[in-house]
Simulated assay, not measured.
Amino acid sequence: MKGILEYTSYRRYIADYYAEKKAKSAFTWQDFTKAAGFTSTVYLKYVSDGYFNLSDAATKRVAAAMNLTEFEQEYFYEMVRFDRAKTDAEKKAIFKKMLSIAESHKAKILEGDSFRYFDSWKNPVIRELAPAMPGAKPLALAHACRPKITAAEVSETLNFLVKANLLQKDKDGKYAQTEIGVSTGPMDATPVAVREMHRQMGEFALGAIEGVPQNERHFSGLTLGVTHDAYDEIVQEIAEFRKRIIAIATRTNDTDEVYRLNVQFFPMTKKCVKKD
């Protein structure tokens, strides 16, 4: 079983803890729930499956039943808080606390780099820009960005990208991408950062309407009435369209400028109920 600091879902951790104990002994969910002081024999099974939630008091009892150390209990408690958080701002703050606990104990949350990458627009932009300007200093890269940033921000971003193995730096100070694209993957925390990325890029798109010459930008839109089946088909078409765009953009290694493509398809009304 992985160490607790490699988890971001407390439900998955409980399930894995049970599976490991079960594999080594005649451990049952009844034994587990009894050790945590619950009367229901399947309570923790339902928690791990997502049907029930843990209260603060229950969280402490479950952590004690699993014999977690002090910092492990703190981390487990933050995972429960992350699961219960209602807003992206809450989730973001809690996940950063989880990262802090892990890093203070020389551990790494596998989702941490992905979370940090999608948390700021600077990461994907500098990741594309640095290889396109071989040997350029942070100040030159900063001046090339349309949203104004400082050389210090560029340096910090470059250091993160190299540390996260999203860029490689050679002996001449030139950067190269380690992979063509960056995918979110099946993460628990990353969607919070991805939504923040969409918000940031949406704001930049609004600014581009007035701030970028019309011959350097393209905006278009459609307002459509659709069925649920049509929605699913359109989303699939958008996914295929994105693949074709990536193929065009990566046809050559040359880059003249870094662009952002936003594809948005969202409801403007509530669902209609048809009447005969």
Results as ranks from 00 to 15, higher is better:
residue 92 K to Q: 15
residue 92 K to A: 14
residue 92 K to R: 15
residue 93 A to Y: 09
residue 93 A to T: 15
residue 93 A to R: 15
residue 93 A to C: 08
residue 93 A to H: 12
residue 94 I to Y: 00
residue 94 I to P: 00
residue 95 F to H: 03
residue 95 F to P: 00
residue 95 F to W: 01
residue 96 K to V: 06
residue 96 K to Y: 13
residue 96 K to A: 07
residue 96 K to D: 06
residue 97 K to M: 12
residue 97 K to I: 12
residue 101 I to C: 07
residue 101 I to G: 04
residue 102 A to R: 00
residue 103 E to R: 15
residue 104 S to R: 13
residue 104 S to H: 12
residue 104 S to G: 10
residue 105 H to P: 02
residue 105 H to L: 08
residue 106 K to I: 02
residue 106 K to E: 12
residue 106 K to M: 06
residue 106 K to S: 12
residue 107 A to D: 12
residue 107 A to P: 01
residue 107 A to G: 06
residue 107 A to L: 11
residue 107 A to R: 10
residue 107 A to Q: 14
residue 108 K to V: 05
residue 109 I to A: 02
residue 110 L to M: 08
residue 111 E to R: 02
residue 111 E to P: 04
residue 111 E to V: 10
residue 112 G to N: 10
residue 112 G to H: 02
residue 114 S to V: 07
residue 115 F to H: 05
residue 116 R to V: 14
residue 117 Y to I: 08
residue 117 Y to Q: 07
residue 117 Y to L: 06
residue 117 Y to K: 05
residue 117 Y to F: 15
residue 118 F to Q: 03
residue 119 D to W: 01
residue 119 D to V: 01
residue 119 D to F: 06
residue 120 S to W: 02
residue 120 S to P: 03
residue 120 S to A: 11
residue 121 W to V: 07
residue 121 W to L: 04
residue 122 K to G: 00
residue 122 K to H: 13
residue 122 K to Y: 09
residue 122 K to A: 06
residue 122 K to P: 00
residue 122 K to S: 05
residue 123 N to R: 11
residue 123 N to V: 01
residue 123 N to M: 09
residue 123 N to I: 00
residue 124 P to F: 07
residue 124 P to D: 00
residue 124 P to R: 05
residue 124 P to M: 04
residue 126 I to L: 11
residue 127 R to P: 09
residue 128 E to H: 05
residue 128 E to S: 11
residue 129 L to E: 01
residue 130 A to C: 04
residue 135 G to Y: 08
residue 135 G to Q: 10
residue 136 A to M: 07
residue 136 A to D: 08
residue 137 K to N: 12
residue 137 K to G: 09
residue 137 K to W: 03
residue 137 K to T: 07
residue 139 L to Y: 13
residue 139 L to M: 14
residue 139 L to R: 14
residue 140 A to H: 13
residue 140 A to M: 13
